[in-house]
Simulated scan of single mutants.
Amino acid sequence: MLSPSCKNWQFAVHGRQLAVMEWGNPEGVPVIALHGWLDNAASFTLLAHHLPQIRLIALDLAGHGLSDHRPAGQPYYIWDNVADVLALVEHLGLERVVLLGHSLGAGVATLFAGAFPERVSRMILLDGMIPLDYPAEQLPESMARALRRGARLGRRSLRPYASFEEALQTRINSRWPVSRQAATWLLERGLKQQADGWVWRSDIALTQPSIVRLCEPQIAAFVRRLTMPVKLIMAERGEELSLIESMLHMVPSLEFDMLPATHHLHLEPEPARQIADWISQRLLADQDG
């Protein structure tokens, strides 16, 4: 399957460049798409095939894809992604947007919408809804563990792949497997070639545990502020539902569905078509209303 026509561009945030993929109708409803951990904006390529009528704007989160890494020694906190999303919305001059988030991106979307509910008209969340937490009473031990691992980070290096094909096979057969086509989309944006082989563009610091995370009561405060319509689509063969079940009742206007799919459901042909149909129907209804 060929990639749909896409515009690639960048914008600056505090001296860092963040990269964006944009598809569809420039006059269509703006949808900000936020990818999962160690993925990149290309994870929304298949959905873009089915949504030519909307303006789909997918951000490479910091340290992913073609976006700059955060400065050495600066941790990757999820709330810093919220600041980057706000910078993107402001850069585009948009008053209100639809948020589309997968996994980590869904957690970023929830924090953004909870902080700025007046800026979000609708949310579509894919196999995720909230960020990972640290129970408050476990924070000291979790912090110590993360700091010890972070101290060893400087001695680690990325093992290069001998070929693009070797990297492709590794991604296809990873913990979260995807099809060859999906892996190709992700790796074309997520790999770079150097003298000794192919390596990931993503920052190795992303693989480290967080020094600090929000705790459940703090996350719940954001969830309760999701006053806009929220469509949550979970994967039957995913592992995320148990992490969010306790908070589903807190969302005032939640529409919940499950699809027979794996974690990357938006990169599987039939689930992606269904997700795109749901998005199209709801955005059309919003326009008619």
Rank of each mutant, 00 (worst) to 15 (best):
Q53M: 10
G15F: 14
M250F: 11
L254P: 00
F11G: 04
V82I: 10
S179W: 08
M129P: 03
S253Q: 07
S103Y: 00
N81L: 12
I32R: 01
L265W: 00
V20P: 00
P52E: 08
G128C: 04
G93A: 13
L248M: 14
L59D: 03
A182C: 05
E216I: 15
I54Y: 09
M21Q: 11
I124C: 01
L158D: 09
R70Q: 12
L51I: 06
L46Q: 13
I219V: 14
E268R: 10
R282Y: 09
P260T: 07
R155L: 11
E188R: 12
A205Q: 12
L254N: 08
I244M: 02
Q169C: 01
F164W: 12
A33I: 15
Q193D: 10
A19W: 14
L254T: 05
H266N: 04
L47H: 06
L187K: 01
D277V: 15
M250V: 04
A109G: 07
Q10M: 02
T207R: 06
G128D: 03
R175K: 10
Q169N: 09
L94G: 08
H266R: 01
Y76H: 07
A221S: 08
G150F: 15
Q194M: 07
R224Q: 12
L267P: 00
L214P: 07
Y161Q: 01
L259H: 02
L139M: 11
L168W: 04
L168D: 02
G73A: 11
T184N: 07
A285N: 06
S5H: 13
V223H: 05
P4D: 02
L191Y: 01
L100P: 00
M1A: 09
L47R: 07
V212N: 14
H50F: 15
A115V: 03
Q138C: 11
L125A: 03
L92Y: 02
D257A: 13
F164M: 08
S67C: 05
A62R: 02
E166H: 10
D257P: 01
N8V: 11
I124W: 01
Q74N: 03
L243H: 13
M123D: 03
E118K: 09
L86M: 06
G73M: 11
A221Q: 08
E236S: 08
R201G: 02
D196W: 04
L47T: 06
R213Q: 10
L132T: 08
M21I: 01
L125K: 08
T227D: 10
C215E: 11
S67W: 05
W278L: 08
H69R: 05
R70T: 05
R175W: 06
R175F: 12
W176P: 00
V13A: 06
Q208C: 06
R119H: 10
E22R: 07
L132Y: 13
S246W: 15
P52M: 08
D257H: 12
V97R: 04
S253I: 14
L186A: 13
E240F: 10
V13W: 14
V230C: 09
N173I: 11
E239Y: 14
A144W: 11
H69I: 14
Q193Y: 06
L61S: 08
V120L: 15
R213A: 10
R156P: 01
W23C: 05
R155K: 07
A235C: 13
A221H: 05
L284W: 12
G15Q: 12
V223K: 06
D196I: 04
S5V: 04
E188Q: 14
T184A: 13
